[in-house]
């Protein structure tokens, strides 16, 4: 929350924007995003497709440059041109474990390569370190000399995580690491992230398009909508009292195993507007059930709302009861 970067922040993103296109058609993939990650904290970043989650992940990991704003690791600004040491601090886990591993390298060479390049351990210790990494992600040493093609999706994702961990990063950016996996496998990978946090004190930015996935994993959740964070809160606060109508709709759309919920109408309608031609005022107003005329004039900023550390970018934050959607639907 503080504007001065504290020592405890493993990563902080300050007012980052990313624009694509020429003067006529500017697409604002990110429009002033600020976020910080404390040491050992897992922050979930959720939002629908096109909200800018993956762009933010790429900028943080150094895969692409931002148009403006700063990314700080350990309080030091890091740009797009990073040296090996700066790359080492922030590692990324990709969405699709079927394309994120080089099909021509065995697991051992994949892991040993980064260990060698970054000189993480002495040369004669590489084998030992490789097995330690395998243990860390719950894979057997006997798998070391196999090729990625011989593994299942979940196993591949474990290998990808081991590769990211090999350089002993401080921050892991995981871009929808479970959305390409079977539901039964998703849970085991989520467990792995949980245990890595407690064993290594790793900070994780965990991206998902589904609140249910991150609910039991993360400490805080940031909700993105059209290139902006519209609500940030500790996970319990967010689920107990979501302040932004978009978050409320997202929570309402999480499927639950209760027959009563089947009657609930879709909580959110329509597609997000084009990020090239943003609506005036609040960018959610065309889809918002509570939109007033002021919503079409004023672009709300993230302001404290309700519980401590709870921020929301809605003019009526605090005034809109989370149950109001369900209540109006039920009375209708």
């Amino acid at each position: 929350m503080s504007t001065i970067s504290g020592v405890n922040e493993a990563l902080s993103v300050e007012d980052v924007t990313k624009q694509y296109g020429s003067r006529r058609n500017i697409l604002r993939a990110l429009d002033g995003v600020s976020l910080e990650l404390q040491r050992g904290e897992i922050v979930g970043l959720v939002g629908e497709s096109g909200s800018g989650k993956s762009t933010l992940a790429k900028i943080i990991a150094g895969g692409t440059g931002q148009t403006s704003g700063r990314v700080l690791s350990d309080g030091q600004e890091i740009g797009i041109r990073r040296n090996a040491g700066e790359h080492r601090r922030i590692q990324m886990v990709f969405q699709d474990p079927y394309s994120s591993l080089n099909p021509r390298l065995t697991v051992r060479s994949t892991l040993a390569e980064v260990l060698r390049v970054h000189k993480i351990v002495e040369r004669d210790q590489i084998d030992k370190e490789v097995s330690r990494l395998m243990g860390l992600v719950g894979l057997d040493d006997s798998a070391l000399d196999a090729y990625p093609g011989q593994f299942s999706g979940g196993q591949r994702q474990r290998i990808a995580i081991a590769r990211a961990l090999a350089v002993r990063p401080e921050v892991l950016v995981a871009d929808e690491p479970v959305s390409a996996l079977d539901v039964s496998v998703q849970a085991t990978i989520l467990d792995l992230f949980r245990s890595l946090r407690s064993e290594l004190g790793l900070s994780v930015l965990f991206i998902a398009h589904n609140l249910a996935v991150v609910q039991h994993l993360v400490d805080r959740i940031a909700v993105m909508y059209l290139g902006r964070i519209v609500e940030v809160a500790p996970v319990q606060a967010l689920f107990a009292a979501p302040q932004h109508p978009y978050t409320q709709a997202l929570i309402a759309s999480v499927p639950r195993m209760r027959p009563a919920d089947l009657e609930r109408a879709p909580a959110i309608e329509g597609e997000p507007p084009s990020p090239i031609h943003l609506p005036p005022g609040c960018r959610f107003n065309p889809r918002c059930a509570h939109a007033q005329s002021s919503c079409r004039d004023t672009d709300p900023t993230l302001e404290p709302a309700g519980a401590p550390d709870h921020l929301a970018a809605c003019l009526f934050a605090g005034a809109l009861q989370p149950r109001s959607i369900a209540a109006t639907k039920e009375s209708a």
Partner: peptide, 9 residues
Amino acid sequence: YVQAARLGG
């Protein structure tokens, strides 16, 4: 995997 190698430094 190429992006991963590049981001791996």
